[in-house]
């Protein structure tokens, strides 16, 4: 089955441009997605867009969608009762291991896969999670209670200092890394933030995984458009989550 069909059951605005959209299956639901895996959402007459799964129950799929133009502008305005197609889940998500101290960096709309990771980590023995959410200003922060209720230690950074640490999320992370020991640093957000987080992980000798964004069109590894330049890796099947090691092969043409 290519498209699994869903009906929109709710749409809640979280910030000026970020919405939480809940879908309910009308035939067979997609199989279980791991944190970081994604689906293609088909909005009839509009188009398809890749979306990270935020929450998944038997018949329900939850997304946190940012309006970044194109079909996403329509996706944040999906209304109750509308029918959509969903295919996936695709790709490889974040690795979850027992007895690990995780530092998670979510930049703006990069939060959903990491919130799903927090949920999965809850039931994993010996895992502790520090979840950082960064944004320009307090009005752009969302779902902090969600992360707290799942047992994560939550901290925020804002560029303007209107809430939490004043500065970039990677600066906050640098502070935390120099104060305590973490086993792994996972990040999702704008590429510049991911590269800075990768730099931190290298400097502090911490295992790194980051969820990246590329031009995903077929999502099954045949159109070649989402290649991670220089690595020979495709974001849709080999990612969207890549480890430091996988990306470093990049520079050597590996």
């Amino acid at each position: 089955m290519w498209y699994h069909h869903y009906r929109v059951s709710s749409n809640t605005q979280l910030t000026s441009n970020i919405h939480r959209v809940v879908l309910e299956s009308t035939d067979t639901p997609i199989s279980k997605a791991k944190a970081g895996e994604f689906v293609m959402l088909y909005i009839p007459a509009v188009g398809e867009l890749p979306l990270s799964v935020f929450k998944q129950k038997e018949e329900e799929l939850h997304f946190v969608i940012e309006d970044y133009g194109g079909p996403s502008s329509r996706a944040v305005n999906l209304h109750k009762g509308e029918m959509v197609g969903v295919r996936g889940p695709y790709g490889r998500g974040f690795t979850l291991k027992q007895n690990t101290n995780y530092l998670l960096l979510a930049g703006g709309s990069g939060a959903p896969p990491l919130l799903k990771f927090v949920e999965e980590a809850q039931s994993t023995p010996g895992v502790s999670v520090t979840y950082l959410l960064g944004a320009r200003s307090a009005s752009e922060l969302f779902l902090l209670d969600e992360a707290r209720s799942m047992g994560a230690r939550v901290m925020v950074s804002t560029d303007d200092g209107s809430m939490g640490y004043k500065g970039l999320i990677t600066q906050l992370a640098e502070k935390l890394l120099s104060e305590a020991t973490y086993d792994a640093l996972y990040a999702c957000g704008p590429e510049q933030m991911l590269l800075a987080a990768m730099g931190l992980a290298k400097r502090f000798g911490v295992y790194f995984e980051g969820s990246f964004v590329r031009d995903v069109r077929c999502a099954v590894g045949v159109c070649g458009l989402c290649v991670m330049e220089g690595t020979g890796r495709l974001l849709c099947v080999d990612g969207p989550v890549f480890s430091l090691h996988e990306l470093e092969a990049a520079q050597h043409g590996g």
Binding site: W2, M40, L49, R217, A219, L225
Partner: peptide
């Protein structure tokens, strides 16, 4: 992949569909 003189954007998704018996694309 086919190379043209100038840059081309191609079509926006959905550009590919697959069933057990065939694929269809318009990339």
């Amino acid at each position: 992949k086919t190379i043209f003189k100038d840059e081309r954007n191609g079509y926006l998704p959905p550009i590919y569909y697959e069933s057990p018996n065939y694929s269809i694309n318009a990339v």
